[in-house]
Amino acid sequence: MILKNRHNNLEIVFEESLLKEIETIAVQHYPNEFGGFLLGKYSEDFKSVVIESIILPYKYKASPVLFQRSTKDLEKLFIKEYQENSRYYIGEWHSHPNGSTMYSGTDLNAMIETAESDEVQIKNPLLLIISISKKKMQNFTFYYYSEKKLFAYE
């Protein structure tokens, strides 16, 4: 699947099977929000990013309207992904149970903190929000972070 963003002309490329995997994980945590990290790589010309896999947090807090993940104890996984598959952190995903795929102020603030963190090497992370019901994903939206704003893919 390929999505484009009018703001930056950056394409997102991903397999539907990866989206299905994210859906399955999110539905398993219903009615609470849940999420994780997106891994992949940019093309040489930086006009597209390929999302290839995810990493799930070991530690997190979740409720029907909140998801806070920790990066504690994940450094080795990120290093292994880079060394073995040349994949690195490109963004995050989380679910909105019985909600829309529109980001909240909390979501935006989390992306601002991530982009400004010394531990993160990219300044324009992606955010995927999926809307789920008890049984399945209802919808999904990818966002591109830039200049303290999130821009939706179509």
Rank of each mutant, 00 (worst) to 15 (best):
Ile2Ala: 01
Lys4Gln: 03
Lys4Asp: 02
Asn5Lys: 08
Asn8Gly: 08
Asn9Pro: 01
Ile12Gly: 01
Glu21Thr: 13
Ile22Ser: 05
Ile22Leu: 05
Glu23Asp: 12
Thr24Asn: 13
Ile25Asp: 02
Ile25His: 05
Ile25Lys: 14
Val27Arg: 06
Val27Asp: 05
Val27Trp: 02
Val27Ile: 14
His29Thr: 02
Tyr30Ser: 06
Gly36Tyr: 14
Gly36Ser: 12
Leu39Ser: 06
Gly40Leu: 11
Ser43Glu: 06
Glu44Ser: 15
Phe46Thr: 10
Lys47Ile: 02
Ser53Asp: 15
Ile54Pro: 01
Pro57Val: 11
Lys59Gly: 04
Lys61Ser: 10
Ala62Asn: 12
Val65Ile: 15
Leu66Trp: 05
Gln68Ser: 09
Ser70Arg: 06
Ser70Trp: 06
Ser70Ala: 07
Ser70Val: 10
Thr71Tyr: 14
Lys72Gln: 12
Asp73Trp: 03
Glu75His: 13
Glu75Gln: 14
Phe78Gly: 06
Glu81Lys: 15
Glu81Thr: 09
Tyr82Leu: 12
Tyr82Pro: 03
Asn85Ser: 12
Ser86Gln: 15
Arg87Pro: 01
Gly91Trp: 07
Glu92Lys: 11
Glu92Asn: 13
Trp93Tyr: 15
Pro97Cys: 01
Gly99Thr: 10
Gly99Lys: 09
Tyr103Gly: 00
Tyr103Ile: 04
Ser104Lys: 08
Thr106Ser: 08
Leu108Ala: 10
Leu108Asp: 04
Asn109Ile: 02
Asn109Glu: 10
Thr114Phe: 10
Thr114Glu: 11
Ala115Met: 13
Glu119Val: 06
Val120Gln: 07
Asn124Trp: 06
Pro125Gln: 07
Pro125Val: 12
Leu127Gln: 08
Leu127Tyr: 08
Leu128Ser: 03
Ile129Gln: 05
Ile129Tyr: 07
Ile129Cys: 03
Lys135Trp: 02
Met137Ile: 06
Met137Cys: 02
Gln138Thr: 11
Asn139Arg: 13
Phe140Ile: 05
Tyr143Leu: 03
Tyr144Asn: 05
Tyr145Glu: 05
Glu147Phe: 06
Glu147Asn: 15
Lys148Val: 07
Lys149Gln: 13
Phe151Met: 08
Tyr153Cys: 05
Tyr153Asp: 08
